[in-house]
Measured scan of single mutants.
Amino acid sequence: PDFTLHWNGITIHFKGIDEEQFRHLRELLDRGVSLEELEELAKELIK
Rank of each mutant, 00 (worst) to 15 (best):
P1L: 14
P1A: 11
P1H: 14
P1K: 15
D2P: 06
D2V: 15
D2F: 08
D2T: 15
D2L: 11
F3L: 04
F3R: 01
F3K: 02
F3N: 01
F3C: 06
F3T: 01
T4A: 03
T4S: 07
T4G: 01
T4Q: 02
L5W: 01
H6S: 13
H6F: 04
W7L: 13
W7D: 02
W7S: 08
N8F: 04
G9K: 01
G9A: 01
G9S: 02
I10S: 05
I10D: 02
I10E: 06
I10R: 09
T11F: 03
T11Q: 05
T11R: 02
I12G: 01
I12F: 03
H13G: 04
H13E: 14
H13C: 08
H13V: 14
H13N: 10
F14V: 15
F14S: 02
F14T: 04
K15I: 15
G16R: 02
G16N: 13
G16I: 05
I17D: 04
I17N: 02
D18R: 03
D18F: 04
D18M: 05
D18N: 13
E19S: 07
E20W: 06
E20R: 07
E20N: 12
E20A: 13
Q21W: 08
F22L: 08
F22H: 03
R23K: 15
R23L: 14
H24F: 12
H24Y: 14
H24K: 13
H24A: 12
L25P: 00
L25S: 00
L25R: 00
L25G: 00
L25N: 00
L25Q: 00
L25F: 09
R26P: 01
R26S: 14
R26Q: 13
R26F: 08
L28N: 04
L28K: 05
L28A: 13
L28G: 03
L29F: 14
D30Y: 07
D30T: 10
R31Q: 13
R31T: 12
R31G: 10
R31I: 08
R31Y: 08
G32E: 04
G32Y: 07
G32N: 07
V33R: 05
V33S: 13
S34Q: 06
S34N: 05
S34M: 06
S34R: 09
S34H: 06
L35W: 09
L35R: 05
L35K: 04
E36D: 13
E36W: 07
E36K: 13
E37K: 12
E37P: 01
L38I: 15
L38F: 10
L38H: 00
L38T: 01
E39P: 05
E39R: 13
E39D: 07
E40K: 15
E40Y: 11
E40T: 11
L41C: 03
L41P: 01
L41Q: 04
L41D: 01
L41Y: 14
A42H: 10
A42E: 03
A42I: 14
A42Y: 15
K43S: 08
K43E: 11
K43Q: 10
K43R: 12
E44W: 02
E44A: 12
E44L: 07
E44G: 13
L45G: 05
L45F: 08
L45D: 02
L45A: 08
L45Q: 05
I46G: 13
I46D: 08
I46N: 12
I46M: 11
K47E: 11
